[in-house]
Computed example of a mutant assay.
Amino acid sequence: MTTMIGYLRVSTEEQASSGLGLEAQRESIRRYADAHGWDVIWYEDAGLSAKSLDRPQLQAALTRLHSKKRDAAGIVVAKLDRLSRSVVDFASVLELARAQGWALVAIDLGVDTSSPTGELVANLMMSVAQWERRVIGERTSAAMQAAKRRGQRFGFPSALPETTGERLLKLRATHTLACTATRLNAEGLTTATGASWTANTVAKVQKRISAAMEAVVEA
């Protein structure tokens, strides 16, 4: 029997909302899994928003799928917004699933990369996300260049080269925190203190850089 990871999430505000509760999501996934003959391993993030992918249980699920001894064929969510409210973030997970060879299923949208039709829907979403990412990237790049001419920095720790920070952001577009740390270490890039990267340090540096970049873009 195929084993899938069932991922559940509710924010603090949504915990009591009709149709968004953990049990409603669990039941939807259970029905879909039964129809496909899947066994389900459950991961849930309660009281957390979907503004980013940096949620403990989601990252644990993605790390499990990345393991060389992977014991699950993919991840399934009842609704797309349980995984992410960002098309770009969702596309990043899709790219990760494709690169690592596991399935991603969003029941409400008919995305199921284990089937031809679901793969088609996923590809259409990928195209939209790539367009959105390019538009955002062009806007951010223009703002960064203008700020650099003014001598403004972007929140990089003083001893961290901008090239390292930019590499971190590029990796995070398609990699989990743990995978990003592994790649940075493999490429011989260190933190501002010269230490090896961990998932925690990647998250902290990304948050600092992103906040500074957003401030520049909004200025």
Rank of each mutant, 00 (worst) to 15 (best):
S114H: 00
S115Q: 00
S115P: 00
S115H: 00
S115A: 01
P116G: 01
P116N: 06
T117R: 07
T117A: 06
T117I: 14
G118W: 03
E119M: 05
E119Q: 05
L120F: 02
L120M: 08
L120P: 01
V121M: 09
A122I: 00
L124K: 02
M125P: 04
S127L: 04
S127W: 14
S127H: 06
S127C: 07
A129D: 08
A129S: 08
A129M: 00
Q130R: 11
Q130H: 15
W131S: 12
W131E: 07
W131R: 10
E132C: 07
R134P: 12
V135Q: 04
V135K: 11
I136A: 11
I136R: 12
I136H: 02
I136C: 15
I136P: 02
G137M: 13
E138Y: 13
E138I: 15
R139Y: 13
R139N: 07
R139D: 07
S141V: 15
S141R: 09
S141E: 06
S141F: 08
A142Y: 10
A142W: 08
A143G: 04
A143C: 06
M144N: 05
M144L: 09
Q145S: 08
Q145L: 09
A146P: 09
A147N: 00
K148D: 04
K148L: 15
R149V: 15
R149M: 05
R150W: 02
R150N: 07
R150D: 03
G151E: 10
G151M: 13
G151C: 10
G151N: 05
Q152Y: 15
Q152M: 14
R153Y: 09
F154M: 06
G155T: 12
G155P: 05
F156C: 11
F156H: 00
F156L: 15
P157G: 07
P157D: 04
S158E: 05
S158C: 09
A159C: 12
L160K: 07
L160G: 10
L160C: 01
P161G: 06
E162Q: 11
E162N: 08
T164F: 13
T164M: 13
T164A: 13
T164R: 10
T164N: 08
G165F: 05
G165L: 11
G165S: 09
R167F: 02
R167D: 04
L168K: 15
L168C: 02
L169F: 07
L169N: 03
K170R: 13
L171I: 00
R172V: 03
A173N: 05
T174V: 12
T174S: 11
H175T: 00
T176P: 06
T176K: 04
L177Q: 04
A178N: 04
A178E: 10
C179M: 09
C179R: 02
C179L: 14
T180N: 02
T180F: 14
T180M: 08
T180V: 05
T182K: 15
T182M: 15
R183P: 08
R183N: 08
R183W: 10
L184Y: 03
L184Q: 05
L184H: 10
